[in-house]
Amino acid sequence: KITVTFNGEEKARRYYKKMQKHNLKVEIRVENNQWVVHVE
C-alpha cells in the first residue's frame, strides 16, 4: 500500500487517474490540508 501526499488538488487528481488506469484500488482524500492518494 502506497500513500502519496500532494500540496495541490490538480497534481493529486492527475496521479489518481494515472493509477486508476493500472486497475489499482485508489482512494483520494484531504488530510491536514494536504491531498493524499492511497494506492492498494
Rank of each mutant, 00 (worst) to 15 (best):
M19E: 02
Q20V: 11
V4T: 04
E27Y: 10
E40C: 12
K18R: 12
T5S: 08
R14T: 07
L24N: 05
H22W: 10
M19K: 03
G8A: 15
K25D: 05
K18A: 14
W35F: 04
R14N: 10
V4L: 10
F6R: 01
K17L: 14
V30D: 03
E10M: 11
E27C: 11
G8P: 02
V30K: 14
Y16N: 01
E10V: 10
K21S: 13
T3Y: 07
T3F: 07
Y16T: 03
E9S: 04
N23K: 09
H38L: 14
N23G: 15
H38I: 15
E10F: 10
N7T: 12
L24P: 04
R13E: 04
N23T: 04
I28S: 00
R14C: 13
G8Y: 12
N32I: 05
K18G: 04
T3P: 02
Q20R: 12
Q34E: 06
T3Q: 06
I28M: 08
N7A: 11
K11M: 15
K17I: 12
Q20M: 13
N33L: 05
K25Q: 09
R13S: 03
I28Q: 00
V37T: 00
I2Q: 06
K18Y: 15
Q20K: 14
N32S: 05
E10G: 09
V26T: 04
V4M: 11
E9K: 09
N23P: 03
K1I: 12
R29P: 00
E31S: 07
K18Q: 12
Y16A: 15
I28A: 01
E27A: 07
F6P: 01
H38E: 15
W35V: 03
R14Y: 08
V39G: 01
E27R: 05
K21D: 11
K18D: 07
K25C: 11
Y16M: 14
K17H: 11
E27W: 09
K17M: 12
N33F: 07
G8L: 14
E9I: 09
V4S: 03
V36P: 00
N33G: 15
E31P: 01
V37R: 00
V30P: 05
Y15R: 02
V37M: 02
K11R: 12
V26D: 00
A12M: 03
Y15T: 01
K21Y: 09
M19W: 05
V30L: 14
L24F: 13
Y15K: 02
V39L: 06
K1H: 12
K25F: 07
F6Q: 01
K21A: 13
V4H: 06
K17Q: 13
R13C: 13
R29F: 12
T5I: 14
Q34N: 07
A12D: 01
N7E: 13
Y15C: 05
Q20C: 13
E31M: 08
M19I: 04
N33M: 07
F6I: 02
Q34M: 14
F6N: 01
E31T: 06
E40Y: 15
K18C: 15
Q34T: 09
N7I: 08
K1N: 10
H22T: 08
R13I: 10
V39H: 04
E10I: 09
K11A: 15
Q20H: 05
K21V: 07
N33R: 05
I28N: 00
V36N: 02
M19R: 02
V26Y: 00
H38Y: 15
V36A: 04
N33T: 05
N23M: 07
R13Y: 11
L24D: 03
V36F: 07
T5K: 11
H38P: 01
E40F: 15
R13H: 05
M19L: 08
E40T: 12
Y16F: 12
W35E: 00
A12C: 05
V26I: 05
N23H: 13
K21M: 13
V4D: 01
V4P: 01
V37H: 00
L24E: 03
K17E: 14
V37N: 00
M19V: 05
V30Y: 15
K1P: 10
A12H: 04
Y16E: 03
T3C: 14
E9V: 08
L24G: 04
K18S: 09
E10A: 14
Q20F: 06
A12P: 02
Y15H: 02
N33A: 07
